[in-house]
Amino acid sequence: MLIDTHCHLDFPDFAPEQAEIVARAKARGVGRMITISTHLSRFDRVKAVAEAYPDVFCTVGTHPHHSHEEAEPTVEQLVTLSQHPKCVGLGEAGLDYHYDRAPREVSQRVFRTHISAARETGLPLVIHTRDADDDCAAILREEMGKGAFPALLHCFTSSRELAETAIELGLYISFSGVVTFKNSADLRETAKAVPLEKMLVETDAPFLAPVPHRGKRNEPAYVVDTARLLAEIKGVSEAELARVTTGNALRLFSKMPPLEQAA
């Protein structure tokens, strides 16, 4: 069994066939899905998806692209909203200097707010970082020095150095379909170096469909294809890759009930 640790089932792309998409994932052995918040103001939509399906869980937070569009969340808000029984994490929050849609100082401040909430709740923070390796590493080191907090770098496409920093600080690293792309040789080398016990798998659906589905709308069922490639990179069987990454996800997202006790 696999866990898709990052998808966006509340997005309009999935609205006409949401139930079918969840069913297709289950049919391919994807036993759990975590649908990720991008707007604090739309948490009700994310929460509703998680409430509708026993094996779908959610997070709460504001994506860096939108950190300037909404009122900045407070730690208290995030802590309160995260108490929902199906909410198992915070974010996604972080830094995106590729598009630079939000002023950097705003996204950095909102990132730190989410870190404080992760530290207070013990829930993992889902971190989005793109073309911001130095600042991300600096913030993680500084904030970890104030007190440990659980976190992962999602849809990892950054440098080997940032991966090493994250692992040193105790974070997990999640790989998406990008690792299957023809031009991702460097990323595959990074995946090869990441300890299996620190690895997660995800789709980031509806984005970034893996080979052989590249160019199509992504969906949680396709995490199987990413996992297959990662197993090859790591030199383990697909069953072993699934066993370890699922165990990793359950340890990190520890608010999720054991597999036999889906909420």
Rank of each mutant, 00 (worst) to 15 (best):
R188Y: 08
E51K: 09
A118P: 00
L9H: 06
M33S: 07
D44C: 11
G91I: 00
E240S: 11
D55E: 14
H6A: 06
V194R: 01
R119F: 07
C136A: 15
D134V: 13
A221Q: 07
S174A: 12
K234E: 11
R42W: 06
N183I: 02
E72R: 11
L200H: 05
E240L: 13
I173M: 09
G235P: 04
G235S: 11
V60I: 13
G61D: 07
E232C: 02
G215V: 08
Q261Y: 00
G89R: 01
T245C: 10
K192Y: 13
A19F: 10
E69W: 01
P257Q: 05
R214N: 11
K47D: 14
A117V: 06
P64I: 10
K47C: 15
E17W: 09
E120W: 01
A163R: 01
F11T: 07
V56E: 03
A132F: 00
H98I: 03
S237N: 11
L40R: 05
D96V: 09
H84C: 10
T35M: 08
Y99H: 15
D134C: 05
D131P: 03
I173S: 05
R214C: 09
D131Q: 14
A148S: 14
L230N: 08
H114F: 05
S82C: 07
E260H: 13
E51F: 00
A138Q: 12
T157P: 01
G170R: 01
V79W: 07
E105L: 12
G31W: 07
R109I: 06
S254Q: 08
A118G: 10
L229G: 03
